[in-house]
Design a protein around this nucleic acid. Sequence first.
RNA 1: CGGGGUAUAGCUCAGUCUGGUAGAGCGUUGCGUUUGGGACGCAAAAGUCGGGGGUUCGAAUCCCUCUGCCCCGACCA
Length: 565
Amino acid sequence: MRLSQFHLATVKEVPADAEITSHRLMLRAGMIRKLASGLYTWSPLGLRVLRKVEHVVREEMNRAGAIEMLMPSIQPKELWEETGRWQKFGGQLLKIKDRKQQEFCYGPTHEEVITDFARNELKSYKQLPVNFYQIQTKFRDEIRPRFGIMRAREFLMKDSYSFHLTQESLAETYAAMYQAYTRIFTRLGLTFRAVQADTGAIGGNASHEFQVLADSGEDAIAFSDGSDYAANLEKAEALAPTIERPALTAALQRVDTPTQKTIDDVAGYLKVSPQQCVKTLLLRGTEGLVALCLRGDHEINQVKAGKLAELPDEPVLASEEEILAATGTRPGFIGPVGLPDSIPVIVDRDAAVLGDFVCGGNADGSHYTGANWLRDAQITRIADLRNVVDGDLSPDGHGVLHIARGIEVGHVFQLGQKYAEALNATVVDDQGKPQLMTMGCYGIGVSRIVAAAIEQRHDDAGILWPEAMAPWRIAVCVINPKNTPEVAEAAEALYQALSQRGIEAVLDDRGLRPGGMFADMELIGIPHRVVISERGLAAGTLEYRARNETESRAIGQAELFALLG
RNA sequence: CGGGGUAUAGCUCAGUCUGGUAGAGCGUUGCGUUUGGGACGCAAAAGUCGGGGGUUCGAAUCCCUCUGCCCCGACCA
């Protein structure tokens, strides 16, 4: 590509509210322009990068035996009513009407459409297993789009859906997809982890998220330093402590804490550590209120709480009025001691081994010290309720957990029969009897990968693309071509030679001053650069510099070609 | 959905408190001088100050209202 024939649109200034690096750099490099909240136009430069990601994804999906197809982005309401998700998907579902007032949605995902396709197309177990995929624009009406392309409303996704007669067959394809994803993210030059994920309300047997590690990531993941265990924070199990509950030594004593409502305030006021306190949360259960007790320095894990039989899938805190009615006190002073018998007390594993602890007094402005389980407060059940923290033992028994931030770029999921059942997608088995198909689904956030890569690979000057994602692999910069025809000719010749070898090169023939040219090429992250100038021609060598190096070096043309493989 | 901001030239922003004929930098156009890390000079084009309503002799500025966008929070296969 000759830059004089391209539309490069770098800018120096970027809105003050573009907060994260990838958003700022994508705007500065002119890769994207915002059209409306969560909607972005991909410029020619941005699209080149997006296509590179697509290319790798497509190659590896094909290699893994998946078959590409394309489904409509607009989907009819009726299909979504069959699975119950027209209502259940909630506000993220963008609903639209056509001129006949027929209702549709802009697809946020394609389980309904693919399962409808499958039930019509697949008739025999001999057609299974099969794995269909597409690379398609999706729309989710996010409550709060942010971070540019990272959490946009419209985005590009690769989604695939596999169909099986047996769970074993599903497990095989799942493993193949796991491998394919590993290859994809490795080829894209990303530092990532596959982490165990919660299977959520859908159920299913297994799920992994592929997380690109970056401090700006929205997800927290826990990983072991002594094994390959990794899980997202929602899923990671907090093991039962190995210590026994200490023998009680203190008497239960009520103390005044007139204004101290938070654990930090209470602990500071009473001069004890938060670890010696028990925090009690009252939630709306399926039958009346439920108390959850955690150690003061720990945080509740909502997913784990949602799995308790006493609580709904998505638990919510009780209101102040409900708490007042049930306990006679307000949030901040609730404790397990002296709660009404009707309220089950579910205690986290770590809170359950505390002795002589501090807890709320169930009366405004008071707490207990010297509280002990069994003597002073009953335990209905002990459960894992908390988020793991840095330093916890790994659940697989090897090593210690650490917490990192990640950007979710891929997700593999053993769906099971939920959609096949709702849409009655069956094939006949070898006995001639209809069987529900079992499904897997596998997603990759293609557009999000572009932003994730920048989060991971940038410096003060701009983006450092991995080779596989770079819009061009090498930039040929020409200095003062107008003054010296030989320089222009040499640059043109090198550009032609690179192109003939199939090396994607960009010739910067815009006639800019050197500073502007270098700054642009660094900003847009071209991995290799060669400068052609009078000075270099005289020396008979090429002036080469890699994007991640700070010094140029003189090399011959043969060496350059070898370098670019 | 709750809370807080914000909307002025192509872009990034001043100006609003204290009402009086619209500003800067960058970018763009033309001419000239320049040419190894975002050059300089001269000249020029460019805004219904988000929309509507009101107050006033006079509104970017004050009041009402609508809309867009952003931030924090809750939410997120």
